[in-house]
């Protein structure tokens, strides 16, 4: 089944004369991990907020074209209803954790949709276990570390048992170790629970191996959409879109330019190592 499908979607926020998204047509299947890549103001947040109906239900906007999430027309479905299908994680942990204890934070969603208490308890335990925060139940969220806060935000979304998880720049406040942990967790969610995951980021460097697919946005338009090895090696398009290309992919392109016909494209560290070692070994015969 399709996790979501946007068809010729246009978004214009009320009071703005710029299109935040312009003629976006994207369909994502369930179980995919998709990187939504773009600079600031490329439309990443708008894309994310369309998926759980915050746009246009909470943030007034004119939305043209169809937005369908797990078979439901978003324009006719409330944010509260969509919340059981789409989990949303925002960039700053501080403003999305508003409860006084970890367990209340995770229970907040299920409580709102009147899940029976026994079921809430088991969901809370499950979600905290998945993100590695078991036993943190009574701790105040404000006392957690940055990485723990972001995992708590994920647990708070997971307790609604969503099929689609949308993360809008989740690595924003994390250190490199925290980012590594976060991406490992996302991989687990897909592998163990078959969850569809959308990650919006400005930078693809540490995500090249996690994603199945990359959608490159520029000024509200999709300019590339495909496998990471394909999209992330279109260096010029990424540069124009204001996104820095992953270093290894960039290197591959630069070498292909400098030594035409002498190197094969590579995408991983291992591939790069082998290719350059070969290139150095076979020196001689270059045009000066």
């Amino acid at each position: 089944m399709r996790a979501f499908e946007l068809t010729k979607t246009r978004v214009r926020y009320r009071g703005s004369d710029i299109l935040a998204l312009c003629d976006v047509s994207v369909g994502v299947d369930e179980g995919e991990i998709v990187l939504l890549l773009g600079s600031n103001n490329a439309g990443k947040s708008t894309f994310c907020r369309l998926l759980n109906g915050l746009v246009p239900h909470s943030i007034p906007a004119q939305v043209d074209g169809a937005v369908e999430v797990l078979g439901r027309d978003v324009s006719k479905t409330s944010v509260a209803r969509l919340a059981t299908l789409v989990g949303m994680v925002f960039q700053e942990p501080e403003s999305q954790l508003f409860c006084m204890s970890v367990e209340e934070e995770v229970a907040f969603g299920p409580e709102n949709i009147a899940i029976p208490r026994a079921e809430i308890i088991s969901r809370v335990e499950w979600a905290l276990g998945v993100v590695g925060l078991s036993g943190y139940n009574a701790r105040p969220p404000s006392n957690l570390s940055g990485g723990e806060k972001q995992r708590l935000a994920i647990a708070a979304a997971l307790s609604m048992r969503p099929r689609l998880l949308v993360l809008d720049e989740p690595a924003y406040a994390l250190d490199p170790a925290g980012r590594t942990d976060l991406y490992a967790l996302l991989r687990t969610l897909r592998e163990r629970y078959g969850m569809t995951i959308i990650i919006a980021e400005r930078d693809a460097e540490e995500l090249t191996e996690l994603c199945d697919r990359v959608i490159l946005l520029r000024s509200g338009r999709v300019v590339a959409d495909g496998a990471p090895s394909e999209v992330l090696s279109r260096i010029d398009e990424m540069v124009v879109a204001g996104v820095s290309p992953p270093q290894i992919a960039h290197l591959s392109a630069l070498l292909a330019d400098r030594f035409p016909g002498k190197t094969r494209p590579f995408f991983t560290m291992g591939g790069a190592e082998k290719e350059i070692a070969d290139l150095v070994r076979t020196s001689g015969g270059d045009a000066p």
Partner: peptide, 27 residues
């Protein structure tokens, strides 16, 4: 104000106000 804005979005994304009678984890 910025925090309050984000807070409102975060709460709605977790079905705040979905039903009149909600349940409670801790009774």
């Amino acid at each position: 104000l910025k925090t309050a804005d984000m807070l409102a979005l975060a709460m709605q994304s977790r079905a705040y106000g979905a039903r009149r009678n909600r349940t409670y984890l801790r009774e």
